[in-house]
């Protein structure tokens, strides 16, 4: 009975979507906020990557909030999963290949992650993508050596400081008389590595924060006791 109702509901939804689709106007591509941003972003922010301009400048507060969501999720994850009991059974050790691979990959992942973060204002990528790579760099050893663990204290300090940096840069702008999170510093030459004012600094903070939070969250999940 329940499934029948559910199926009926889905069919109704499908019909609704089909109706929306029939009425949708696909030709609307010219007039929107994004195109307006495309025409002014280069002068206003100095970043060659306009998506970065949107993420960090035009919609910077969204980014701060999503960082906060990750922060909160990681914190709650830690709270929910709790500490592992000392006598809890461990996963079996990983094999030789995984261990060696993890060791080899660690520096590479670190470099790639930082590269992607630091070039976020120029090329596709940025703090989030690079941060995820950083997180995987720190998470791989955990998979390779089930006994080891990430120091959650260090992580909580790093993520707290990184998040605070983001906000403090925003407050710095306020102290100079601009609005919160206004772009600061010299915009530099469009397309150069050191350009776009405060955006790369913000992206670095984002990258470190995302990296530390995801690493912490993954470590918590990996640490979670297996069900008997």
């Amino acid at each position: 009975m329940r499934r029948f109702t559910a199926a009926l509901f889905l069919i109704g939804l499908g019909v609704m979507i089909a109706a929306i689709y029939q009425h949708m106007d696909f030709s609307n591509t010219a007039l929107n906020a994004g195109q307006a941003i495309n025409s002014v972003a280069a002068q206003e922010t100095g970043a060659a990557n306009f998506v970065t301009s949107v993420v960090l400048a035009y919609r910077g507060i969204d980014t701060l909030l999503e960082l906060t969501i990750l922060f909160t999720a990681a914190m709650i994850g830690g709270m929910v999963l709790g500490k592992r009991r000392v006598d809890a059974p461990r996963d079996p050790d990983a094999g030789f290949i995984l261990r060696t691979g993890a060791d080899l990959l660690f520096p590479l992942l670190l470099v790639v992650g930082l590269y992607i973060i630091l070039h976020g204002h120029l090329t596709p990528g940025g703090g989030f993508q690079g941060g995820v790579i950083l997180a995987s760099a720190f998470f791989l050893p955990l998979l390779a050596r089930p006994g080891s663990s990430i120091n959650q204290d260090v992580i909580s300090i790093v993520e707290g400081l990184a998040g605070a940096t983001f906000i403090l840069i925003g407050l710095l702008a306020m102290s100079e008389g601009y609005e919160f999170l206004s772009p600061l510093f010299d915009k530099g030459e469009l397309g150069a590595l050191i350009s776009a004012g405060s955006l790369p600094v913000l992206y670095l903070a984002v990258g470190i924060k995302v990296g530390s939070e995801l690493a912490g969250l993954l470590a918590h999940l990996a640490e979670a006791e297996a069900v008997d």
């Binding site: 906060t68 993520e159 707290g160 998040g163 906000i167 407050l171 919160f180």
Partner: peptide
């Protein structure tokens, strides 16, 4: 410039730093 944004920014900042402050 408007102080209103502080209503949002300050609590977030404090929340980020709380565990560090706790250490001190």
């Amino acid at each position: 410039m408007n102080l209103l944004v502080l209503m949002i920014a300050l609590p977030l900042l404090a929340a980020f730093l709380l565990s560090i402050i706790d250490r001190a």
